[in-house]
C-alpha cells in the first residue's frame, strides 16, 4: 500500500490530521470548560479572555451545588433517586429483555412471529406521543410522585428485546438440548446457561438502559411533584433556571452529575461504544 510517499500525500495526511484535531478541540473544549469553570468564582467564568487554568480551587461552588440555592441539600437525595431509578430500570430491562429474547429465539409457539413484530412495532411509537396518556394512567393507579411511577413505564424496551433475540438466535442449540436431556428444569436452563452466557450483550444493554434513565428529563418532569422525588436532570434544570444561580456552582452541579457516567465510560468504554455499533450491524 505504501509504495512511494510523495509530498502531496504528506500534505493530504497533515490536512487530515489538522481537521481531526480541530474537531477534537470542538468536542473536548466544552467539557474542559465545565471542569475548569466548576473551580472558578463566577466573575472569572464570564471574563474575556477565558482563563483555562483556574488560579485556585473555589470550594464554595461545590458547597452551593450540593446545598442548592435554597440551602435544602436536595442534591444528594436527587442523585440517590436517579441511581435508584436507573439501576432498577437496568435490572428489569436486562431480565425481561433476556427472557423475551430467549423465548422468541429458541422456542416455537403459535404467534411467535406476530409477537416479535408487535414488539418491534413499539419502537416506532415515540415516547413523546404517549406521555400524556401514560401520565393519566400513572396518576390513576396512584404511582405519581413515586419510584414506581418513575420506573414502571421503562421496565423493558423493544430495542433491548431485539438485541437479546438477535444474540440468542446464534446461541448453540446443543447446550440447551443437552441440559434438557439431563433433565434440567427450563427455568434452570435460563438462569444457569442462557443468562451467564449472554454477559457481553447484557453489559451493552445495561449501559444503554442506565444512561437513558440517567438522561431522562421529560417523564420525571411529568410525574414528579415534590423536591424529594426529583431526579438529577430536574435538579439541574431547576438550578440552571434560577436567576440568581452562580455560574461556577452551575458547572459544579453539571460536573458532579456527570461523574457516575464518566466512571462507567472509562471502566466499560467498549460496551458503551458497542451500544452504538449495534446499529451498523443491522443490515437490510
Amino acid at each position: 500500500m505504501n509504495s512511494h510517499i510523495t509530498t502531496g500525500d504528506r500534505l493530504v495526511k497533515s490536512l487530515i490530521y489538522a481537521v481531526l484535531i480541530l474537531f477534537v478541540i470542538f468536542t473536548v473544549a466544552p467539557l474542559v470548560f465545565m471542569i475548569t469553570a466548576s473551580m472558578m468564582p463566577a466573575k472569572d467564568i464570564v471574563k474575556m479572555p477565558y482563563r483555562w487554568i483556574p488560579e485556585s480551587f473555589h470550594w464554595p461552588n461545590f458547597y452551593k451545588a450540593i446545598a442548592g440555592n435554597d440551602g435544602r441539600f436536595m442534591f444528594p437525595r436527587n442523585i440517590l433517586n436517579s441511581l435508584i431509578v436507573a439501576s432498577s430500570v437496568t435490572v428489569t430491562t436486562v431480565l425481561l429483555a433476556c427472557m423475551t429474547g430467549y423465548g422468541l429465539a429458541k422456542f416455537r409457539f403459535r404467534g411467535r412471529t406476530f409477537v416479535f413484530m408487535m414488539i418491534m412495532a413499539t419502537m416506532m411509537i415515540p415516547f413523546e406521543a404517549i406521555m400524556i396518556p401514560l401520565y393519566l394512567v400513572t396518576t390513576k393507579i396512584g404511582l405519581q410522585n413515586s419510584y414506581g411511577g418513575l420506573i414502571v413505564p421503562f421496565m423493558v424496551n423493544a430495542f433491548g428485546v431485539f438485541m437479546m433475540r438477535q444474540y440468542l438466535v446464534t446461541f448453540p442449540d446443543e447446550f440447551i438440548e443437552a441440559a434438557r436431556i439431563d433433565g434440567m428444569h427450563e427455568m434452570r436452563i435460563f438462569w444457569s446457561i442462557i443468562f451467564p452466557n449472554s454477559a457481553p450483550t447484557i453489559a451493552t444493554l445495561s449501559i444503554l438502559a442506565f444512561r437513558a434513565q440517567w438522561d431522562n428529563l421529560l417523564w420525571p418532569l411529568l410525574v414528579v411533584q415534590s423536591e424529594k422525588m426529583k431526579t438529577i436532570p430536574l435538579y439541574i434544570v431547576k438550578f440552571t433556571a434560577e436567576k440568581h444561580s452562580d455560574e461556577g456552582a452551575m458547572m459544579a452541579v453539571a460536573l458532579l452529575a456527570s461523574i457516575p457516567m464518566f466512571i462507567l465510560f472509562f471502566a466499560l468504554s467498549e460496551y458503551f461504544i458497542g451500544g452504538s455499533a449495534v446499529f451498523s450491524s443491522r443490515k437490510g
Binding site: 427472557m99 423475551t100 422456542f107 409457539f109 414488539i119 411509537i125 396518556p133 394512567v137 421496565m155
Partner: peptide, 25 residues
C-alpha cells in the same frame, strides 16, 4: 411451546399496557 409463551408473556403484558394502550388512548 408453553415455556416459550411463559418467557414472552411478561413483555407482552408490559407492551400492551405501556405502549399499545397509551397510543390508542
Amino acid at each position: 411451546a408453553r415455556w416459550g409463551l411463559i418467557f414472552v408473556a411478561p413483555s407482552i403484558a408490559f407492551f400492551s399496557v405501556f405502549s399499545f394502550y397509551p397510543i390508542g388512548m
